[in-house]
């Protein structure tokens, strides 16, 4: 069965880009528009992997990761954060919050799929 990945980003264009790439590679995709939205949806329906932006309104990515890790169902779920080169310290924050890895924006579809393979198989 195809694995399901949630992408969380307040930018609809990034969600679209990530979504298209993932669907093209045969994954199911669900979307969250910010950390809060994602958390609500994920509590109801766990997924196989989460890709989240860090800078978002309502609930940022770091908090989302921390909240998810606190949920039994997400204890071991791969969570990858989207960062930019200007956020080197945020990378460390993300890691300590429980992120599995990161993708540096901007990225190409192939890079994204490479990272997914690394953490999800």
């Amino acid at each position: 069965m195809a694995k399901t990945i949630m992408t969380v980003d307040d930018s609809s264009s990034v969600r679209q880009m990530v979504g298209l790439t993932l669907k093209g590679a045969g994954y199911n995709v669900v979307e969250g528009v910010d950390g809060q939205d994602a958390l609500n949806k994920l509590k109801a329906n766990p997924v196989d992997m989460v890709i989240t932006d860090l800078n978002m309104p309502n609930m940022d990515g770091i908090t989302l990761i921390r909240e998810l890790r606190a949920l039994p169902a997400f204890k071991f779920t791969p969570i990858v954060m989207l960062t930019t080169e200007s956020q080197a310290n945020r990378k460390a924050d993300g890691k300590s919050a429980g992120a599995t890895g990161w993708i540096v924006k901007p990225f190409k579809p192939a890079q994204l799929l490479g990272v997914i393979k690394k953490v999800l198989g």
Binding site: S11, V14, M17, P57
Partner: peptide, 24 residues
């Protein structure tokens, strides 16, 4: 300030991904 930063951040990030290199 966070909102301003976020807006620019998103424009930059998505811009680069969608090929708007000058904007990014």
């Amino acid at each position: 300030i966070g909102r301003v930063f976020r807006a620019m951040h998103t424009i930059k990030g998505s811009g680069a991904m969608f090929g708007f290199d000058d904007v990014a």
